[in-house]
Protein backbone atom coordinates (compact mmCIF):
# COMPACT_ATOMS: atom_id res chain seq x y z
CA UNK A 1 0.00 0.00 0.00
CA UNK A 2 1.43 3.30 -1.11
CA UNK A 3 0.89 6.26 1.17
CA UNK A 4 -0.90 8.88 -0.91
CA UNK A 5 1.15 12.01 -1.36
CA UNK A 6 -0.43 15.32 -0.36
CA UNK A 7 -2.23 17.09 -3.16
CA UNK A 8 0.40 19.72 -3.99
CA UNK A 9 3.43 17.45 -4.32
CA UNK A 10 2.41 14.72 -6.72
CA UNK A 11 4.41 14.24 -9.93
CA UNK A 12 2.49 15.31 -13.05
CA UNK A 13 1.05 12.75 -15.45
CA UNK A 14 -0.76 14.78 -18.04
CA UNK A 15 -1.70 18.34 -18.88
CA UNK A 16 -4.48 19.59 -21.11
CA UNK A 17 -3.97 23.23 -22.01
CA UNK A 18 -6.54 25.42 -23.74
CA UNK A 19 -8.08 22.48 -25.53
CA UNK A 20 -10.96 23.16 -27.91
CA UNK A 21 -12.87 20.49 -29.76
CA UNK A 22 -15.25 21.50 -32.50
CA UNK A 23 -17.35 18.99 -34.43
CA UNK A 24 -18.40 19.97 -37.92
CA UNK A 25 -18.78 23.69 -38.42
CA UNK A 26 -20.28 24.85 -35.15
CA UNK A 27 -20.71 22.14 -32.52
CA UNK A 28 -18.32 23.27 -29.81
CA UNK A 29 -18.02 20.17 -27.64
CA UNK A 30 -15.18 21.60 -25.54
CA UNK A 31 -13.91 25.14 -25.10
CA UNK A 32 -10.69 26.12 -23.35
CA UNK A 33 -10.38 22.93 -21.33
CA UNK A 34 -7.60 23.11 -18.78
CA UNK A 35 -6.72 20.08 -16.70
CA UNK A 36 -3.68 18.95 -14.76
CA UNK A 37 -3.57 15.32 -13.81
CA UNK A 38 -1.04 14.24 -11.22
CA UNK A 39 0.00 10.83 -10.08
CA UNK A 40 -2.48 9.32 -7.63
CA UNK A 41 -5.25 11.81 -8.44
CA UNK A 42 -8.82 10.67 -8.48
CA UNK A 43 -10.55 13.28 -10.62
CA UNK A 44 -14.28 13.31 -11.34
CA UNK A 45 -15.72 15.12 -14.33
CA UNK A 46 -19.22 16.11 -13.26
CA UNK A 47 -21.72 17.81 -15.50
CA UNK A 48 -25.01 17.65 -17.39
CA UNK A 49 -25.45 15.61 -20.54
CA UNK A 50 -23.64 17.03 -23.55
CA UNK A 51 -21.07 19.08 -21.65
CA UNK A 52 -18.16 17.27 -23.29
CA UNK A 53 -17.11 14.81 -20.59
CA UNK A 54 -16.81 11.89 -22.96
CA UNK A 55 -15.16 14.12 -25.52
CA UNK A 56 -12.50 15.06 -22.97
CA UNK A 57 -11.81 11.38 -22.25
CA UNK A 58 -11.64 10.49 -25.92
CA UNK A 59 -9.15 13.29 -26.49
CA UNK A 60 -6.99 12.06 -23.63
CA UNK A 61 -7.24 8.49 -24.93
CA UNK A 62 -5.94 9.68 -28.28
CA UNK A 63 -9.08 8.56 -30.09
CA UNK A 64 -9.47 12.11 -31.42
CA UNK A 65 -7.20 15.09 -31.73
CA UNK A 66 -8.00 18.52 -30.29
CA UNK A 67 -9.09 21.20 -32.73
CA UNK A 68 -6.77 23.60 -30.92
CA UNK A 69 -4.73 23.35 -27.74
CA UNK A 70 -2.45 20.62 -26.50
CA UNK A 71 -2.49 17.45 -24.47
CA UNK A 72 0.94 16.65 -23.09
CA UNK A 73 2.05 13.56 -21.24
CA UNK A 74 4.86 14.17 -18.82
CA UNK A 75 8.22 12.55 -19.41
CA UNK A 76 7.74 11.66 -23.04
CA UNK A 77 6.22 12.71 -26.28
CA UNK A 78 3.90 9.76 -26.92
CA UNK A 79 0.70 8.78 -25.28
CA UNK A 80 1.13 7.08 -21.95
CA UNK A 81 -0.09 3.68 -20.92
CA UNK A 82 -3.87 3.80 -20.49
CA UNK A 83 -6.70 1.75 -19.09
CA UNK A 84 -10.27 2.49 -20.10
CA UNK A 85 -13.64 1.52 -18.65
CA UNK A 86 -16.79 2.38 -20.59
CA UNK A 87 -20.40 2.64 -19.47
CA UNK A 88 -20.99 -0.88 -20.81
CA UNK A 89 -18.61 -3.63 -19.71
CA UNK A 90 -17.46 -3.97 -23.35
CA UNK A 91 -16.18 -7.51 -22.99
CA UNK A 92 -15.57 -9.95 -25.80
CA UNK A 93 -18.47 -12.39 -25.35
CA UNK A 94 -16.73 -15.16 -27.26
CA UNK A 95 -13.97 -15.67 -24.79
CA UNK A 96 -13.37 -16.22 -21.09
CA UNK A 97 -12.89 -13.73 -18.28
CA UNK A 98 -9.15 -14.43 -18.09
CA UNK A 99 -8.68 -13.93 -21.82
CA UNK A 100 -10.69 -10.71 -21.72
CA UNK A 101 -8.45 -9.38 -19.00
CA UNK A 102 -5.40 -10.55 -20.95
CA UNK A 103 -6.38 -8.47 -24.00
CA UNK A 104 -3.97 -5.54 -23.43
CA UNK A 105 -1.05 -7.95 -23.15
CA UNK A 106 -2.16 -10.04 -26.08
CA UNK A 107 -2.35 -7.01 -28.35
CA UNK A 108 1.20 -6.13 -27.37
CA UNK A 109 2.44 -9.63 -27.98
CA UNK A 110 3.23 -10.27 -24.34
CA UNK A 111 2.68 -13.59 -22.62
CA UNK A 112 4.28 -15.81 -20.03
CA UNK A 113 4.40 -16.19 -16.28
CA UNK A 114 4.50 -12.46 -15.56
CA UNK A 115 1.36 -11.89 -17.59
CA UNK A 116 -0.41 -14.79 -15.89
CA UNK A 117 0.54 -13.29 -12.53
CA UNK A 118 -0.74 -9.87 -13.53
CA UNK A 119 -4.06 -11.34 -14.63
CA UNK A 120 -4.47 -13.34 -11.43
CA UNK A 121 -3.58 -10.28 -9.42
CA UNK A 122 -6.04 -8.02 -11.28
CA UNK A 123 -8.89 -10.51 -10.90
CA UNK A 124 -8.03 -10.85 -7.24
CA UNK A 125 -8.17 -7.06 -6.82
CA UNK A 126 -11.68 -6.85 -8.25
CA UNK A 127 -12.82 -9.88 -6.26
CA UNK A 128 -13.23 -12.30 -9.15
CA UNK A 129 -10.70 -14.99 -8.33
CA UNK A 130 -12.05 -18.32 -9.47
CA UNK A 131 -13.97 -16.89 -12.41
CA UNK A 132 -11.05 -17.10 -14.86
CA UNK A 133 -12.79 -19.60 -17.10
CA UNK A 134 -16.31 -18.19 -16.94
CA UNK A 135 -17.81 -16.61 -20.04
CA UNK A 136 -19.15 -13.05 -19.76
CA UNK A 137 -22.74 -14.21 -20.22
CA UNK A 138 -22.47 -16.24 -17.04
CA UNK A 139 -21.78 -13.11 -14.97
CA UNK A 140 -24.09 -10.47 -13.50
CA UNK A 141 -23.88 -6.86 -14.66
CA UNK A 142 -21.77 -5.86 -11.66
CA UNK A 143 -19.37 -8.75 -12.18
CA UNK A 144 -18.96 -7.89 -15.86
CA UNK A 145 -18.07 -4.36 -14.84
CA UNK A 146 -15.48 -5.78 -12.44
CA UNK A 147 -13.92 -7.73 -15.31
CA UNK A 148 -13.81 -4.52 -17.30
CA UNK A 149 -12.05 -2.77 -14.42
CA UNK A 150 -9.59 -5.65 -14.06
CA UNK A 151 -8.75 -5.33 -17.75
CA UNK A 152 -8.17 -1.59 -17.35
CA UNK A 153 -5.73 -1.97 -14.46
CA UNK A 154 -3.99 -5.20 -15.42
CA UNK A 155 -1.12 -3.41 -17.15
CA UNK A 156 -0.69 -1.12 -14.16
CA UNK A 157 -1.27 1.91 -16.41
CA UNK A 158 -0.29 5.48 -15.67
CA UNK A 159 -3.88 6.63 -16.05
CA UNK A 160 -7.28 4.95 -15.97
CA UNK A 161 -10.22 6.60 -17.74
CA UNK A 162 -13.73 5.69 -16.64
CA UNK A 163 -16.77 6.98 -18.53
CA UNK A 164 -19.85 6.58 -16.30
CA UNK A 165 -18.86 3.00 -15.52
CA UNK A 166 -21.61 2.37 -12.96
CA UNK A 167 -24.43 4.39 -14.53
CA UNK A 168 -26.22 1.32 -15.85
CA UNK A 169 -26.09 -0.62 -12.57
CA UNK A 170 -28.60 -0.75 -9.74
CA UNK A 171 -27.89 1.38 -6.68
CA UNK A 172 -26.87 -1.46 -4.36
CA UNK A 173 -24.32 -2.79 -6.85
CA UNK A 174 -23.19 0.74 -7.54
CA UNK A 175 -22.46 1.50 -3.87
CA UNK A 176 -20.60 -1.76 -3.51
CA UNK A 177 -18.51 -1.04 -6.58
CA UNK A 178 -17.81 2.50 -5.34
CA UNK A 179 -16.40 1.09 -2.10
CA UNK A 180 -14.40 -1.54 -3.94
CA UNK A 181 -13.05 1.02 -6.39
CA UNK A 182 -11.75 3.12 -3.51
CA UNK A 183 -10.20 0.03 -1.95
CA UNK A 184 -8.53 -0.70 -5.21
CA UNK A 185 -7.26 2.85 -5.54
CA UNK A 186 -5.77 2.63 -2.06
CA UNK A 187 -4.08 -0.66 -2.85
CA UNK A 188 -2.67 0.26 -6.26
CA UNK A 189 -2.28 4.02 -6.01
CA UNK A 190 -3.69 4.28 -9.53
CA UNK A 191 -4.57 7.59 -11.17
CA UNK A 192 -8.16 7.91 -12.33
CA UNK A 193 -10.34 10.28 -14.33
CA UNK A 194 -13.92 9.34 -13.62
CA UNK A 195 -16.92 10.70 -15.52
CA UNK A 196 -20.22 10.74 -13.67
CA UNK A 197 -23.64 12.38 -13.45
CA UNK A 198 -23.86 11.67 -9.75
CA UNK A 199 -22.89 14.28 -7.18
CA UNK A 200 -22.72 11.65 -4.43
CA UNK A 201 -20.50 9.35 -6.42
CA UNK A 202 -18.11 12.14 -7.32
CA UNK A 203 -17.77 13.34 -3.71
CA UNK A 204 -17.35 9.86 -2.29
CA UNK A 205 -14.70 8.83 -4.77
CA UNK A 206 -12.61 11.75 -5.81
CA UNK A 207 -10.14 14.21 -4.37
CA UNK A 208 -10.93 16.67 -7.14
CA UNK A 209 -14.25 17.38 -8.85
CA UNK A 210 -14.22 19.22 -12.15
CA UNK A 211 -17.70 20.64 -12.76
CA UNK A 212 -18.55 21.27 -16.40
CA UNK A 213 -21.30 23.12 -18.27
CA UNK A 214 -22.66 22.58 -21.76
CA UNK A 215 -22.98 24.64 -24.96
CA UNK A 216 -20.10 25.19 -25.21
CA UNK A 217 -18.67 22.40 -23.08
CA UNK A 218 -16.32 23.92 -20.52
CA UNK A 219 -15.06 23.73 -16.96
CA UNK A 220 -16.92 26.11 -14.65
CA UNK A 221 -15.52 25.11 -11.28
CA UNK A 222 -13.02 22.80 -9.65
CA UNK A 223 -13.74 21.56 -6.13
CA UNK A 224 -11.29 19.79 -3.87
CA UNK A 225 -12.49 17.06 -1.55
CA UNK A 226 -9.62 17.07 0.91
CA UNK A 227 -10.70 14.06 2.91
CA UNK A 228 -8.04 11.44 3.42
CA UNK A 229 -8.11 8.01 1.80
CA UNK A 230 -8.95 5.31 2.64
CA UNK A 231 -12.53 6.45 2.95
CA UNK A 232 -14.86 3.97 4.54
CA UNK A 233 -18.57 3.56 3.95
CA UNK A 234 -19.03 5.65 7.13
CA UNK A 235 -17.73 8.69 5.20
CA UNK A 236 -21.13 8.84 3.50
CA UNK A 237 -22.77 9.86 6.78
CA UNK A 238 -20.30 12.52 7.95
CA UNK A 239 -21.14 16.24 7.95
CA UNK A 240 -18.06 16.87 5.78
CA UNK A 241 -19.48 14.57 3.13
CA UNK A 242 -22.79 16.42 3.26
CA UNK A 243 -21.03 19.78 2.94
CA UNK A 244 -19.03 18.62 -0.09
CA UNK A 245 -22.17 17.25 -1.68
CA UNK A 246 -23.94 20.57 -1.18
CA UNK A 247 -21.04 22.47 -2.74
CA UNK A 248 -20.87 20.11 -5.72
CA UNK A 249 -24.60 20.19 -6.12
CA UNK A 250 -24.63 24.01 -6.11
CA UNK A 251 -21.87 24.06 -8.72
CA UNK A 252 -23.85 21.59 -10.84
CA UNK A 253 -26.95 23.76 -10.58
CA UNK A 254 -24.91 26.73 -11.71
CA UNK A 255 -23.63 24.67 -14.61
CA UNK A 256 -27.15 23.75 -15.63
CA UNK A 257 -28.42 27.27 -15.10
CA UNK A 258 -25.76 28.61 -17.41
CA UNK A 259 -26.41 25.91 -19.93
CA UNK A 260 -30.16 26.39 -20.04
Amino acid sequence: MQAPLPLGSRPPVLRMSAVDKVFGADIVALKGMQLDVNQGDFISLLGPSGCGKSTALRLIAGLMTPTTGRIEWSGGTGQGDLGVVFQEPTLMPWTTVAKNVALPFRLRGKSGAEVADAIRNALDLVGLSGFENAYPRELSGGMKMRVSIARALVTNPRLILMDEPFAALDEITRFKLNNDLLDLKTKTGCTVIFVTHSVFESVFLSDRIVVMAARPGRVIRTLEVDEPYPRAEAFRTTPEYAAHCRAASDALHDAMGIAA
Binding site: A61, G62, L63, V84, F86, M92, P104, L107
Partner: peptide, 9 residues
Amino acid sequence: NLRDLFTIY
Protein backbone atom coordinates in the same frame (compact mmCIF):
# COMPACT_ATOMS: atom_id res chain seq x y z
CA ASN B 1 -16.27 0.57 -27.80
CA LEU B 2 -14.25 -2.60 -28.33
CA ARG B 3 -12.93 -1.05 -31.52
CA ASP B 4 -11.84 2.00 -29.56
CA LEU B 5 -10.21 -0.23 -26.98
CA PHE B 6 -8.23 -1.98 -29.70
CA THR B 7 -7.12 1.41 -30.99
CA ILE B 8 -6.07 2.51 -27.52
CA TYR B 9 -4.01 -0.64 -27.05
